[in-house]
Structure formats: structure tokens, C-alpha cells
Computed example of a mutant assay.
Amino acid sequence: MDRSFYQFVLTYRGGEKNDPYSVFAETMFNDQSFPKYERSFDALSRYIEEKADSQMSSVLFDELYRHFEDRFL
């Protein structure tokens, strides 16, 4: 399945308010400039480090990307 990282992370939306993955997903969803069709670690990591909200930490991104990689890459 050709799922983007964005589509994968959206599956975490609607979880508990104290769940870091849910907070990341909700913040990403509300970020209108997030690269929605990107699958590349380097491009996404650069975006997270340079432009993303502080609720989307690089540590959480790394964890989520590993889960994404395991399932879709």
C-alpha cells in the first residue's frame, strides 16, 4: 500500500489527550503546510526540525517513522 507518513500518523488521531502520538497526530493535522504526501525520512525530518510546532518533537517523529517504516516501506 502506498501510504504517506501523514496518512499513517492520522491513525493516531482521537486518542487520549496525554498520549504523545495522539498529540503529535492532532498537531500535524492542524499544520496546513505539513508535507502530506511525503514518505522520505530526510525530507520529513528536515520539516520537523525547521518548521514544525514544538508538539511535533523530533524524538516522537523518529519513533513514529520507525513504525511507519516497519509497516509500509
Rank of each mutant, 00 (worst) to 15 (best):
E38N: 04
E69R: 03
M56K: 11
D53H: 15
D70P: 00
T27A: 13
Y37F: 14
H67Y: 13
F61G: 00
R71D: 10
V59W: 10
S54D: 14
L60M: 14
K51P: 00
M28S: 03
S4M: 11
L64P: 03
T11K: 12
Y65T: 01
F72L: 01
A43K: 15
E16L: 14
L10Q: 15
D2L: 07
T11I: 10
L64I: 08
R46A: 13
Q55F: 12
E38W: 04
Y47F: 15
L10G: 02
P35R: 10
Y65N: 00
Y47V: 02
V23Y: 06
M1V: 10
S40P: 00
A43S: 14
T11Q: 13
F61N: 00
P35Q: 09
V23A: 08
T27H: 02
P35Y: 07
A43C: 06
P20R: 12
S4R: 08
D70W: 04
Y21I: 01
R46L: 12
D42Q: 03
D70I: 08
R66I: 09
S45K: 12
E63G: 02
E38R: 05
A43D: 12
V23R: 14
L64R: 10
S33V: 12
D70T: 10
M1S: 11
D2W: 01
D19H: 12
D2P: 03
S57A: 11
E49T: 03
K51R: 12
Q55I: 00
M56W: 12
G14K: 07
S22Y: 02
L10A: 04
N30K: 15
G14R: 06
S45N: 15
R39F: 05
N18F: 09
S54Y: 12
R39L: 09
P20M: 01
R66N: 10
V23H: 04
F8G: 05
Y65W: 11
S40G: 02
L44A: 02
M28Y: 04
E38F: 02
Y47G: 07
P20H: 09
E50Q: 15
R13W: 11
D2S: 03
K36S: 08
D2C: 01
E26G: 06
Y12F: 15
D70Q: 13
L10E: 15
F5E: 05
E63W: 03
R66F: 03
D42M: 02
R3K: 14
L73Y: 08
F68G: 04
D42K: 03
Y37Q: 10
S54L: 13
P35K: 04
S54T: 09
Y65C: 03
F34L: 07
A52R: 00
S33E: 13
N18R: 12
R71Q: 13
L44V: 06
A52G: 11
F29V: 00
I48G: 08
D42R: 05
M28T: 02
N30A: 15
